[in-house]
Design a protein around this nucleic acid. Structure first.
Lengths: 230, 230
DNA sequence: GTCAGGTAATCAATCGATCGATTACCTTCA
DNA sequence: TGAAGGTAATCGATCGATTGATTACCTGAC
């Protein structure tokens, strides 16, 4: 059974992704959740608290999944490949969360924004480390670390802006294609100087993450629990 | 001398990029432009018309610059390199326009939106053609044309979200780095199967575009002239 | 009888847009 | 030269509608 609180959050997520935070009215959220606008305030603090909850939950989930996927990775190339695969998978399957997280940071107040940014920074550090260690080891051959990291992240994040699960591309192909593109982008080579592809690294079965996502969601619910204090 | 109309449009551009279209009030635009909220309506139709003008102008400029840069390109690799260079240059130097164009399509009504999308589609066709011809000629070696095109565009468009002209990277380095990354991403190779870099293709001096941008702006002003009829 | 869950009505504030009135400037003709 | 007439620019005030948020009141389950 789906509770009213969950329906409220889901309605807010959909509307924030669709029309943006500022353009979404309290009454719209209430209508889509099937309650009156007054009843909404039984389940949320302010509209901004609702946004903060959505963003924290999504960011924490991505961070958890990435850290879990990195465990047991053989080397920098495998670490990066797993980061790419998880990032693309999550952005393809949790599209709405991703769109809201990417474009509504400015709608949060300072306090809530810095909390979201802290999670984001911890996540991006995983990428920075994988890239710099891979370059130090001679596996990756690029010049500008900052540019490469940002280009990779923008490329992978963009998936949320165009991917459709009902389109011609299944997510296995999507993930492998992005790993190949990422390897090419940073000029990833094996010991024999041959160009690396997704076939050269081990990537955990990402479809198994579907269950993990739900599980992580529950955990995150406890962690960031409830509403931001104001 | 800068006219009041130009100040209004500039103020709107800044605020739309900063806070988003829906979160920007008419009175804020007026205040930043230095006029009363009533006087604003001598220079614009509705708030949405103002947004449509900003987006059409920016898109038309990008399209013009790209078409101009493509003239005289030697082959698919050079064509793609020029597209990347122009795209990155424009997104680095017309950041506000790019941010608004990328994120405020949903704020337009159907009529204005389809006009903006037509320009965008014409522009993206240049990329699609360069990519597919390059692959047909054996110069580019990637599997999914659609994914590659979208990944490239997202990567290059992302520049507007993080680049700072006052940062450590000058735009020459930025453009060359992105051409190299793009070539790697699509696995671009020369006749000898050697990996291509920016040094293998001729890219017009992009700093000369600064003047062209202003010139194109004037032209576009005539073309899309005035306000969208409603 | 109490309390979580819910509603309808309402709050002050702000929204985009429009109003009539006024100012500043430019022609045109005597 | 200068008064008349026209037009573009700008103002403060205000319109009806909508905003996020709050209140008082109701209902059914335990």
């Amino acid at each position: 059974m789906v509770t009213t609180g969950e329906r409220v959050e889901r309605a807010a997520l959909e509307l924030f992704a669709e029309k943006g935070f500022a353009a979404t009215g309290i009454r719209e959220i209430a209508e889509r959740a099937g309650v009156s606008s007054g009843a909404l305030y039984h389940y949320m603090g302010t509209k901004e608290d609702l946004l903060a909850q959505v963003m924290n939950r999504g960011n924490a989930r991505l961070l958890h999944l990435a850290e879990a996927a990195l465990a047991g990775a053989a080397g920098p190339a495998e670490r990066l490949a797993r980061l790419v695969a998880v990032h693309v998978y999550v952005h393809a399957h949790a599209q709405l969360d991703a769109l809201v997280i990417d474009s509504e940071l400015r709608s949060l107040g300072e306090e809530a924004r810095s909390r979201v940014m802290e999670l984001r920074d911890r996540y991006e550090l995983l990428w920075r480390n994988a890239l710099s260690e891979g370059r130090a080891a001679g596996a990756f051959r690029f010049n500008e670390l900052g540019i490469a990291r940002l280009a990779l992240l923008e490329m992978c994040t963009g998936v949320a802006r165009w991917y459709s699960p009902r389109g011609p591309v299944d997510d296995r192909t999507l993930g492998e294609t992005f790993v190949d593109m990422a390897f090419g982008l940073i000029n990833a080579c094996g010991p024999d100087d041959r160009r690396l592809t997704h076939a050269d690294v081990a990537i955990p079965d990402l479809n198994g993450l579907a269950a993990d996502i739900a599980e992580e969601l529950a955990k995150v619910g406890e962690t960031t629990g409830g509403w931001s204090e104001t």
